[in-house]
Each structure stands twice: as structure tokens, then as C-alpha cells.
Amino acid sequence: MPLRGSSHSHMSISGEDILIYDGSQIDEETHEEIVKFCDKCIMTQFPLLDEDTELHNIVKEAQSHYRNHSKSCLKYHETLDRFEFPRSVARRTFICEPIEVDNDNDKQYTKKVNEIFTEMNATMNALEKEKMLSWSDFDTLPTKYNWNYEDYECVLRVVHTRTVIIHKREPNGRWVNQYNEEMLRVWKANMDIQFVLDTYASEKYLMSYTTKPEREKSLLFEGIHKEYREGNMSVREEMKKLTDTFFNHRQVSVQEAIYSMTKMSPTYSS
């Protein structure tokens, strides 16, 4: 996985006759076409070393999420990974539309299901420390709670509170980020490729990324204001210094600093 500040790209890709998800009211044909498109273009497999050595090594090094969650992973919750790893195991790709919770009974059921799902994940986490997970390892878990596979897919609709695509994923691929095989073989670096279900959310994410706040600059402003409060400068001097700081200081990563110092171009276009 890339280190924070590493050079990377965010982009939305479209094309002619592109499939559009328009909520749960889409017809069955469009639903199936979206699933076919995802199965064709998006992979989640962790190939065995003796099956495809090159792809195995790339997926292992570039596409596998850290099992010991980093501080960034747990940014919003002490135990829940904000990137939603490990990902759900599934025998097929499908659009997972959440079930609405309307009453107290539904809320109690949702709470119980979430507890069981968390327990299932914990069991698989413990098992994969000893061996590579297989379908037989996974199949024993739903039956423990008197679920069949169809029940398990319904549980996913309870666990996920927003519409997501559950990709066909084997038990040993729970920590693998989605990728396109042809692109990954050439790119040889991390990618997270997704079919856009919510155009607004996608564009909002891109905008929030490009306008990410710079905390270090705020600390500089705070230092200047502290000097003013202590009587070391006038209001006019403070405003002048704040303006100068705003236009001439910017928080950069180590990687970007190296780009600047070595006169390397940080952007390219064709």
C-alpha cells in the first residue's frame, strides 16, 4: 500500500454507452449488465504463487491491505477500518442495497446480525493466522448460526447501510483491494478501482481530496496570533504576517519536497 504523501492519482473514467446505476428502480437487465461489467473489469483474486508468480507478487506487495490496521485506518473509529477491510467474502458479484430499518424489532435484529457478522470476521481473522483460508473454512461459519448462503447475502444487506457492490471474492482475498489485472501488470502499484454507484458522492470525494485542510498552516497562524496577544505586534503587523504566511507557506509531504528540490515535474499530461 502507498505511504501517505506518495504520488498518486484520483480520477473518474467514463465512456460511450456507459452503464449508470440509478437507484433500486433500475431494471433487471441493467442490474445484470453492471454486474457483468464489474466481473469483467474488476478483480479481487489473490492468485497462488505457483499459478501466476508475477501477479501473485504484485497483489501481495501493492494490493494487500495491512492486517494490523494503521492509525489512518482507525481514524474515525477505534475498531472499524474506514477502508472497510477485511472485505466481505462472496460467491458472486451483486449490488448490495441496504434493507430499511423501520421499527424496534428491525433495530434489534440489525444489532444482533452485526454482532454475529463481527464474530464471523474475528473467527476468520484468527484462522488466517494459521493457514490460507478456503471455501470450506468459510462455509462452516454461516451454518454455525443456522444460515445458508442466501441468508448470508441478506445479512450483507443489513450490515451495509449504503448501496455498495459486493464483488465476487474468495476467502483468501478478504484483504485484497479491487484491481484491473491488465492495468495492474503494467502499473505495478496500488490501485482501488470501483464502479460508481453515486456520482455525487464520487465527485464530492474528489473535491474534498483536492481541498484537504493543511493543519500545519493553522498552527503557524496560531503562533502568529499568540504573538499578537502577548503584545509583541500591532493588529496591522499581525494581518500583514498572516497574509504573508497564507501565501508563502504550504504543508507538503516528504515526497513532494523531494520533487521540488530536484526540480522534477509533479504532473504529467498526454
Rank of each mutant, 00 (worst) to 15 (best):
R4T: 15
G5Q: 00
S6D: 13
H10W: 08
H10Y: 02
I13W: 14
I18N: 13
L19N: 00
I20S: 08
D22Y: 08
I26T: 01
E29K: 12
I34R: 05
F37D: 10
C38H: 00
K40P: 03
I42P: 00
I42Y: 02
T44C: 08
P47E: 01
H56R: 01
V59G: 03
A62G: 07
Y66Q: 11
N68W: 01
H69C: 06
S70C: 03
K75H: 08
D81P: 04
R91M: 15
R92E: 09
F94P: 03
I99Y: 09
I99A: 05
D102M: 14
D102N: 14
N103I: 00
N105M: 10
K112V: 10
K112P: 07
N114D: 13
I116T: 05
T123C: 13
T123V: 12
A126R: 13
K131R: 07
M132K: 15
D137L: 03
F138A: 09
P142A: 02
K144Y: 04
Y145T: 06
R157H: 06
R162L: 14
E170M: 09
Y179M: 02
M183W: 08
L184S: 07
A189K: 14
M191F: 05
I193G: 03
Q194C: 04
T199W: 15
Y209N: 15
P213H: 08
E214F: 07
L219V: 12
G223R: 07
I224G: 03
R236Y: 09
T243A: 12
N248S: 07
H249G: 09
E256K: 13
M264V: 10
